[in-house]
Amino acid sequence: MSDLTYPEAGATRTGPLPAGYQHLHHRDAIGHGRADLEAAGAAITGFRMHRESGARIEASTSRAEVEASVRVSLGVGPLRFTAPCRVIWTVYGPERIGFGYGTLSGHPECGEESFVAELADDGTVSFTVTAFSRPAGWYARLAGPLVPVLQEQYARRLGRTLRRIVARERGLREAPGR
């Protein structure tokens, strides 16, 4: 993974997050029970959560796999930016499902971001976004202190989107005649 634009690959999985970057840690409760975990995990690793939140996703695989290329596009018209990434780790476990990707050349930021659903002992399903980043492109540097605010807003949007997806899937599971 030598084409990543930063040296601390995997830090969103293993911690601690490296110094010299802005850090983001956002967590939302999104459901309850194993079926909700599985629905959330499928939406995260199949990029559905990103797509339903308004991002355009081009991925080299249908679900997150190590080494998969992912291009995320956000914005509208001339204000759309594209962010090339590579999936650097995945977890498909009984209590944790998700992945982390790192930035490639051409990404406006330099760093890593992860998206994970977790099932707690009490049955709560939580969604966590963890990231470390710093500006790489001139426009990210120009945006300065606005970038962390936008990243936090996007993490919140992903959480709301995932909560809706999980609730919709739960409704389908619990519908009469199923």
Rank of each mutant, 00 (worst) to 15 (best):
V87L: 08
E67Q: 06
V129T: 15
R141G: 14
R86F: 04
A39D: 09
V87G: 03
R56P: 02
A155N: 10
D36T: 11
W89G: 06
V166D: 05
W89S: 11
L158Q: 13
L119V: 07
G144H: 00
D121R: 03
T14K: 10
H107R: 01
T124D: 09
L119K: 01
G159F: 00
Q151V: 15
R63M: 04
E174G: 06
G159L: 05
T61W: 11
E95R: 15
A35C: 05
H25E: 07
G75I: 11
G123Y: 03
E152P: 05
L146M: 11
I57R: 04
P176K: 03
A59D: 01
E118W: 00
R168S: 14
H32T: 02
E113G: 02
Q153D: 09
R63F: 09
I165H: 05
M1K: 06
G177V: 12
E52A: 11
L17Q: 04
E113T: 07
R163V: 11
Y92F: 08
T61V: 08
F99H: 05
H26D: 14
R86Q: 06
V166N: 07
I57L: 13
P148F: 06
I165F: 13
V129H: 01
V125C: 00
R34S: 13
D121K: 00
I57H: 06
T161Y: 12
P84W: 01
E169Q: 08
R134Y: 04
A29F: 03
A42H: 09
P176G: 06
Y21E: 03
T103H: 08
R170V: 03
L24G: 04
L150V: 14
L162D: 05
V87I: 14
A9R: 01
H23I: 02
A83G: 04
F115R: 04
A68G: 12
I57W: 09
G10H: 02
A43H: 11
Q22D: 13
S114L: 05
R156F: 04
P7I: 00
H50M: 11
L162N: 10
A39N: 07
S60Y: 05
E152I: 11
S114T: 05
Y21I: 03
V129L: 05
P78N: 09
T130S: 12
R13I: 02
P94K: 11
